[in-house]
């Protein structure tokens, strides 16, 4: 047992190979590290490597490169040592995505003219589909009574988490709003847009209660769809979902500020208005509504060559070639062939 001469990748550290380089995604600690494809290839058939064999396989120069990268994996705690006999005890991570909800997340937009109540939305559009994670957006100023009514309903129902994106009207005094977030523990995050600076007002506490301000003016649906490493999701749940489904639109619904039901609020096609519809049953089944759900990154042009494809979000509302639903997201500035990012936020948000 003493000769643990194999290095083995931890089951939750997964290699994704891109066209010109690879990435190791650490799904437990939510980080990634880039490695060359030639090194990734060593693990393409099995997730371990016999260190004793290395000197036989590599020449002097390559052997030292190999050892360098093994050291990198060790430093990041991506590998452990084991013996030949122990190899069979370490199975691969099961990569199936299983989630008990027909709808997993909802985006609900409000403005001063919205005459829908959150109570009805919860009752008719969330509860029957087990949808427990929602995002609420307001592009314009809303009064505090509106938010208090909203959060009271949310606190008393089965919703697990809520994200707010609202307009900053606090004139730099955030004590009140911070208290509000602290008192309402289902609030995952609060983003204040059209603010004077980009700042973290309150840090997260076990994934909840984060408050940030952004200079970005989120005044319409069109701000969305930006692809950036900041938005990467490196968890087992999002990774396994990305393997077979669209990483943004799968099992999502949105209700725009006028009450139109869509897959995504930035899309044009509406499938009815909540004023007249009291169930999503037929909408969810509508092949036109759910046509994007199974468009995984492996099916999308350019993305299919990208090393970040299973940790990246997607967008089908703004496409490089609008008439081709498999085309690359328009607001992605990454080129997986050259590994260069060439883009700026401003040009996308205009």
């Amino acid at each position: 047992m003493k000769n643990r001469n194999y290095i083995h990748l931890f089951a939750n550290c997964l290699i994704t190979k891109g066209i010109s380089r690879s990435v190791i995604c650490d799904l437990q600690r939510s980080k990634y590290v880039l490695i060359p494809n030639s090194f990734a290839d060593l693990f393409s058939k099995q997730r371990y490597y016999n260190l004793k064999e290395a000197p036989r396989i590599f020449d002097q120069e390559n052997l030292s490169i190999f050892h360098e990268y093994v050291a990198v994996l060790k430093d990041h705690n991506f590998i452990f040592s084991c013996s030949k006999k122990e190899l069979k005890r370490f199975p691969q991570l099961q990569l199936k995505f299983e989630y008990p909800a027909k709808i997993t997340n909802a985006i609900i937009d409000f403005d001063k003219n919205s005459n829908t109540t959150i109570k009805d939305i919860i009752q008719y559009f969330l509860i029957p589909y087990n949808c427990r994670h929602i995002q609420i957006r307001c592009f314009e100023d809303m009064d505090s009574i509106f938010f208090d009514t909203l959060i009271t309903e949310i606190n008393h129902c089965f919703i697990k988490s809520v994200e707010f994106i609202i307009k900053d009207s606090f004139e730099q005094d955030y004590t009140q709003i911070m208290k509000w977030v602290e008192n309402n523990r289902k609030i995952k995050s609060l983003v204040l847009h059209s603010s004077q600076e980009n700042k973290v007002i309150q840090k997260e506490n076990y994934g909840f209660g984060i408050v940030v301000t952004t200079r970005q003016k989120i005044t319409s649906e069109s701000h969305c769809g930006i692809i950036h490493p900041d938005y990467f999701n490196i968890t087992i749940e999002s990774y396994t979902e990305s393997l077979c489904y669209n990483s943004c639109l799968n099992r999502k619904i949105s209700i725009d500020k006028s009450g139109n039901i869509k897959n995504c609020p930035s899309m044009k096609q509406s499938f009815g208005n909540i004023k007249s519809i009291k169930t999503l049953d037929s909408i969810i089944e509508n092949p036109d509504f759910n046509k994007y759900w199974t468009i995984s990154k492996d099916k999308i042009e350019t993305c299919m060559y990208c090393e970040f494809r299973y940790i990246c979000i997607d967008c089908r509302a703004y496409l490089e070639t609008p008439e081709n639903i498999y085309s690359k997201p328009q607001k992605c500035g990454y080129d997986p062939f050259t590994n260069k990012w060439k883009w700026d936020y401003e040009s996308f948000t205009k």
């Binding site: 931890f10 939750n12 437990q28 600690r29 452990f80 069979k88 005890r89 691969q92």
Partner: peptide, 28 residues
């Protein structure tokens, strides 16, 4: 893998939240 961390060496329940112990599937 509790042995890589001094905090969890004797009892893994002395959790280290910042740098959680590696936890992966196993076959007995």
């Amino acid at each position: 893998f509790s042995q890589q961390n001094e905090k969890t060496k004797i009892d893994y329940r002395n959790y280290d939240h910042k740098n959680p112990n590696r936890c992966v599937p196993y076959i007995l």
